[in-house]
């Protein structure tokens, strides 16, 4: 089974407000707030840690859910966040963004 990697989309604007993530879409400036689970995914989305490890270490511990069920729900959520261009998802690790090297946010 392939693993899924998450990275924060560098095009967005984001800030934590009392533990709740506030995200502005880089596509159309729509403002989102993330629930607790989505906030955990966002904060853990370093491009290097696979989703199953995030779920095991960050979600199962906090919510006391079965790993398989949690992974399924987390993957659905991650894909939804990717549809809104809040997260980037890939089956390969995602390298960190380096604008000085000529990358585009």
């Amino acid at each position: 089974m392939s693993r899924l990697y998450l990275a924060r989309n560098p095009r967005v604007a984001a800030r934590s407000l009392d533990g709740e993530m506030m995200i502005m879409s880089g596509r159309d400036s729509t403002l989102f707030t993330l629930n607790r689970t989505a906030t955990i995914l966002w904060q853990a989305a370093d491009g290097a840690t696979p989703l199953d490890e995030i779920v095991e270490h960050r979600i199962c511990n906090e919510f006391e859910v079965e790993p398989a069920e949690a992974l399924h729900d987390a993957e659905t959520l991650a894909r939804e966040l990717a549809n809104h261009e809040i997260l980037q998802i890939s089956e390969e690790p995602i390298p960190p963004f380096t604008p000085a090297a000529g990358g585009s946010l």
């Binding site: 407000l17 009392d18 403002l31 707030t33």
Partner: peptide, 19 residues
Amino acid sequence: MSAILQEMSEKALKLNIPL
């Protein structure tokens, strides 16, 4: 102002955060 931004502004006001 969007409803979410209004909500965030109210929260920032309550928490004394310079939004």
